[in-house]
Design a binder for these strands. Sequence first.
DNA 1: TGTCGTGGTTTCCAAAAAGGTACTGTGTTT
DNA 2: AAACACAGTACCTTTTTGGAAACCACGACA
Lengths: 120, 120
Amino acid sequence: MQQNQAAAELMTLRDREYKCGIDVTLALVGGKWKASILWHLAQETMRFSDLQRQFSDTTRKMLTQQLRELEMDGLVHRKVYPQVPPKVEYSLTEQGRTIFPILEMMCDWGRNYAQTGSQA
Amino acid sequence: MQQNQAAAELMTLRDREYKCGIDVTLALVGGKWKASILWHLAQETMRFSDLQRQFSDTTRKMLTQQLRELEMDGLVHRKVYPQVPPKVEYSLTEQGRTIFPILEMMCDWGRNYAQTGSQA
DNA sequence: TGTCGTGGTTTCCAAAAAGGTACTGTGTTT
DNA sequence: AAACACAGTACCTTTTTGGAAACCACGACA
């Protein structure tokens, strides 16, 4: 019963209300690519073209869209170098780094499930 | 670079392929209600009508749909009592319980983000 | 002058997820 | 005989996501 001590009040995020912290977390990283993007950025700062290579099965549009949202949510930092051709580097913010332990556990759990759980 | 040691091979789940454990995890609990359902069931076994009360802003249809998928994925156990009116109890399986630490972290992180992170 | 590379944006369309409403089955109670 | 309780199912619509293809800006370079 987590309600009792810490949450009767709703949480607000981008004009939506959530009852539970889990829903907030999923709203931030639950998209099809966001969690993976954060995971990869946790390993190293990457240029847009690096991300395109890593996520070769998505489109530029999706990548920029997800990155913009992560940036607005304060999880990712976008650094533009005033050059031609353009150079843009993406990295995690302090805030973004705090979610790493969760991503790590999700990665392990999912991998383990795929190996053993699905045929249990 | 998590690729190097543990994953070059793809993981398969319900006829889809995933490169990363994170994506597997999200496929299983990334739905709009699934993680919360698991979270509540981790606290206590619940009847369908209990869940309806907890998730009063969704429909019976969505609940059954999500529960069926969680059941198929081996995370939730469905026990039917042969009575009239019907009685059906939902609880976590062993497998389902293993995800609890992740849910707990997501709950804390999300709650913390909602309080402090969004105005940082 | 024309082409290249990077990091996008725009428009349009398809697929997937979520939601609404009505209907069902069946013992028990009134 | 009618209504109720519980746990659904069926059918259809709406909303949200994801994706394909084309276009853009701009300096460098041949």
